[in-house]
Design a protein around this nucleic acid. Sequence first.
DNA 1: ACTTTTCAAACTGTCGACAGTCGACTGTTA
DNA 2: TAACAGTCGACTGTCGACAGTTTGAAAAGT
Lengths: 226, 226
Amino acid sequence: MKSTGPISAPFPVQRNLVDQVADYLTEAILSSRFVPGERLSEVALATDLGISRAPVREAARLLESRGLVISRPRRGFFVRSLDAEELSDVFDLRIGLERHAFERVQQRYSAAIDARLSAAIEHLCSVAEGQREGCRIEEDLAFHRLIFELADNTRLLRAFDDLSFELRLCIALIDRTHDIPASIASAHWLLLEGLRSGDPQQCRAAVDHHIGVARDSVLAHLMDAD
Amino acid sequence: MKSTGPISAPFPVQRNLVDQVADYLTEAILSSRFVPGERLSEVALATDLGISRAPVREAARLLESRGLVISRPRRGFFVRSLDAEELSDVFDLRIGLERHAFERVQQRYSAAIDARLSAAIEHLCSVAEGQREGCRIEEDLAFHRLIFELADNTRLLRAFDDLSFELRLCIALIDRTHDIPASIASAHWLLLEGLRSGDPQQCRAAVDHHIGVARDSVLAHLMDAD
DNA sequence: ACTTTTCAAACTGTCGACAGTCGACTGTTA
DNA sequence: TAACAGTCGACTGTCGACAGTTTGAAAAGT
C-alpha cells in the first residue's frame, strides 16, 4: 500500500492544476506583481508555468467570478482595476454583510463565542505590534471572517469570502507598504463591546463606524495615488 | 465608421460557446431537466451539443461560481442539491441583502423611483392574473432586481444576481407546477408603503415579513416533497 | 505632417487526443 | 452466502494544434 501523498495534510495537496494556477494568479495580483488593467496573456502564463493553456483559462474564469480579473471576449483577461465608485460600492456591500453577520452572532452569543473573539482580538493586537508588513491586513480579515463563521450561515460566509478577494484587491490598489496602523487592531474591542451589550442598535453603530473608518482610509489612500 | 455589431441589441449576441453552454445548462437545471445530484458528463454534454469538451468545462466552472453545480475533483460536475439548512441560509442572506438594498432605496427615494416601482408592481399583479405558470416567479424576481438596481450599487446588484440563481434553484427543487399564489403579487404594495413611509424600521419590518413568507413557503414545499 | 488603408504578428476560441484515476463489475475465497 | 481482491471500462485532467479575430505598426494617400 503506497501513500498517494503526505498524510499530514488535512486536505490533500493541490489536486488539479487549475487550483494551483488560481492560487498563483491570486497571489500575484494581490501582490501587485500584475498592474491593474494589465492584460493576462494565456500563452505567456502557460509557458511561464510550463503548462498548457487549458488550466490557465479555467483558473482565469475562477478569478473572474471572484472579481479579480475581468474577461473581454476575444480580448482576453485583464487584471481588474477599481475606481473610487466601485471601491465605495464594495465597502458599502461589506457594511451590509457585516451588519447581518454581527446581528446573527449577537443573537446566538455565548461565553464560548466571547472567548474565541477575545482571543482573536488579542492575537490581532499582538501581531499589530510586530513589524511584518502586509500581515496585519490578513489578520484583520481573519478576525472578520471568524465573525462570519460564528454567524453560522454557510452562504453568508461564502458571500464574505467572495467579497474579501475584492477587499484585498482594494488594499493592493493603494500602496501596499502603507499598512494599516496598529491602532486599528485595538479598535476591534469596540466591536466586541457592541456584541456584548446585547443591543442591536449599539452593535450596528459599532460596525458602521468600524467599516466606515476602513473605507475612508482606503479611499483617502486612493485619492493620494492619483 | 463601421458599426462593430447590431446596434439594436444592448448586449451583442452570444459570442463564445462558453456563454451559450452556460445559458443552456442554467436553463436545463432550473427547468429540472437535470435531477439535483445528477452527474453532468462532459463528454455526453459535448457530444449532445456537438461541440468540444473545453467550452463545457468552462461553462460548468461558471455555473459552479453561481452555485448551480458543484465540482468534485476527478469526479466531475454534479447538479447542486440544497437541503433545508442550506435553503434557509440562502433566504437568510437574501434578507440581509434586501434590507440593505431597501434602506439605500429609501435614502434616495424620489417621485421617479416611486413611479417605476408602482409600475413594476402593477405589471406584477397583471401578470399574476394570467395563467402562465412559472413566469410569476421570474416577474417576482424582476421586481426585486429593480430594487437592487435602484439601490445604485453595482456590487450589491451582483451579489443579488449571484444569489438569484440559487433562489431559482430553490424554486426548481420544489414542484415547479406549484407556482406562487397570485396574492403574493399584491403583497408587494406593502413593501412600497414601507419605502414611502420614510421610516427605516417600518421598511425593514416589511422586508423581513415579505422574505420570511417566501422562505416559509419554499421550506414548506420542500418538507412536502420528502 | 496627418489621416487612412493594408498587412502581418499575436492572441483567443475551439477542437481532438492521450494518460492517469476512479468506480463498478466479476470472480474468488472463507 | 458474504466479504474481498483483481480487473475492466469510463471519465476527468491535461496537452498540442488549427482557425478566426484583434491589434498594432508599417505603408500609402491626401
